[in-house]
Design a protein around this nucleic acid. Structure first.
Lengths: 109, 109
DNA sequence: CTCGTAGTACGACACCTATCGTAGTACGAT
DNA sequence: ATCGTACTACGATAGGTGTCGTACTACGAG
């Protein structure tokens, strides 16, 4: 399988800002995405995550997470695979991602 | 000193939402306030915290933090005292507040 | 009572954000 | 080449947010 020609821009680790990460996660839809990715512990296609919004809104939310540096995304054919930038986020903000993920588990919808 | 007649509404612990807390903290001005309150470890008057915005904008930011359940506020004469709702937040979202405060310390302005 | 201080409601401005539908692009299978 | 699938740019809508200045309220000191 040849690599897709489509590339996606991600902020480098040193460009990831705490405010941007918190902003990206301050939305229930994006929290749901992050929780799903945390539970999967592998790369997940966009279409594997069922969101209660339209596909174009879903695309919007994935982009916000990517531009904040919360997730990595790459194309595989027509699909786009997503994964949390765990290593980067844990290095930059130790304990933050784990506590947020744990908090989403504890909190009622 | 008699108590002020002015009371301020705060969300009860069970009404504090993770999304609201993250939203309140996703702003550099409010992060600065929270960091100051964390370092002070006591009730702090609004005017003790120097913010690089107008007084009316400062009032706006304190209100966002209170309505999200991040801080407690009460009047003392003309002044208003602020403190983090540490106990509530640590109980609801263990580790979250500490990791955010630590992250603001590590992050360059 | 007046005065100084802390803080604020209000309205305005400029910008941001979540939502959606539509028409479109890129890809792999055939 | 066509076709089905995943995904998206764009524009539109509706609402939210950070900023400020102004005129105001509440309070305590004197």
């Amino acid at each position: 399988m040849r690599m897709s020609t489509r590339l996606l821009e991600h902020p480098s680790a040193e460009d990831i800002r705490l405010e941007s990460v918190l902003h990206a996660l301050a939305d229930p839809m994006r929290l749901a995405i992050v929780r799903f990715l945390a539970e999967s512990d592998r790369e997940v296609g966009c279409s594997e995550i069922e969101l209660a919004v339209s596909k174009s809104t879903g695309t919007h939310h994935f982009r916000v997470l990517r531009e904040a540096g919360v997730i990595n995304q790459c194309y595989r054919g027509t699909a786009k695979l997503n994964a949390l930038r765990r290593a980067d986020l844990d290095a930059l903000f130790p304990g933050l991602l784990d506590s947020i993920i744990a908090a989403t588990t504890r909190q009622a919808p």
